[in-house]
Simulated assay, not measured.
Amino acid sequence: MTTTSPSAPPTHREPAHPSTTGLFDALEGHEQVVACADPDTGLRALVAVHSTARGPALGGTRFHAYADQDAALRDVLALSRGMSYKAAMAGLPLGGGKAVILGDPRTDKTPDLLRSYGRFVQSLGGRYYTACDVGTCSADMDVVAEQCRYVTGRSVEQGGAGDSSVLTAYGVYQGMRAAAEVAWGSPELTGRTVGVAGVGKVGRHLVGHLLDEGADVVVTDVHAPTLGALLQARPEVRAVADTAALVREPLDVYAPCALGGALDDDVVAVLSARVVCGAANNQLAHPGVERLLEERGVLYAPDYVVNAGGLIQVADELDGFDFARARERAAGIHATTREVFARAASDGVPPAVAADRIAEQRMQRSAPGVWLPEG
Rank of each mutant, 00 (worst) to 15 (best):
T52S: 02
R127T: 12
S138C: 14
G96H: 04
G60H: 06
R115V: 07
A139Y: 04
T61E: 00
A72N: 09
A71E: 14
V100G: 03
R119Q: 04
Y128A: 05
D133V: 11
G97C: 09
Y66G: 12
G59L: 03
Y128G: 03
Q122E: 11
R115E: 00
L46M: 12
D108G: 11
R74G: 14
S80E: 14
L102I: 14
V143W: 00
P111M: 08
F120C: 06
A48K: 08
I101P: 03
G118K: 08
Y85I: 10
G59R: 00
T61G: 04
D68G: 03
G55F: 05
A53I: 09
Y85L: 06
A88C: 06
L58I: 12
G103C: 05
Y128V: 01
R106K: 11
F120H: 09
G60Y: 08
T52W: 12
F120W: 15
H64N: 10
L46H: 11
G60L: 11
F63R: 00
S84R: 11
P93F: 02
T61K: 10
D104Q: 13
L102W: 10
I101T: 02
V134T: 14
D104A: 14
V49R: 15
R62W: 07
C132N: 14
P111A: 04
L94D: 04
L94G: 04
L102N: 02
L113I: 04
A87Q: 13
S116D: 08
A48V: 00
V100T: 07
G125D: 12
Q122F: 11
T107P: 11
D112G: 05
S116M: 00
V100Q: 04
S80K: 05
L114H: 07
F63S: 03
V121N: 05
V47W: 12
S123V: 07
A78I: 10
L77I: 15
S123P: 01
P111G: 13
M141R: 15
V76G: 09
L73V: 08
P105C: 06
L114K: 13
R54Y: 01
L77C: 14
G82N: 15
D133L: 11
V121Q: 03
M141L: 15
H64M: 10
V134C: 08
A131F: 14
P105R: 13
A71D: 15
S123T: 03
L114A: 01
G97H: 00
M141W: 09
H64F: 07
Q122L: 07
A53V: 08
A99M: 04
D70C: 07
A53G: 12
D70S: 14
C132I: 11
S84P: 07
M141D: 11
Y85M: 06
C137Q: 12
K109H: 03
V100H: 02
A87V: 13
H64G: 06
L92D: 02
L94V: 07
Y129W: 09
L73E: 13
V121F: 07
V134F: 07
L94I: 03
D108S: 11
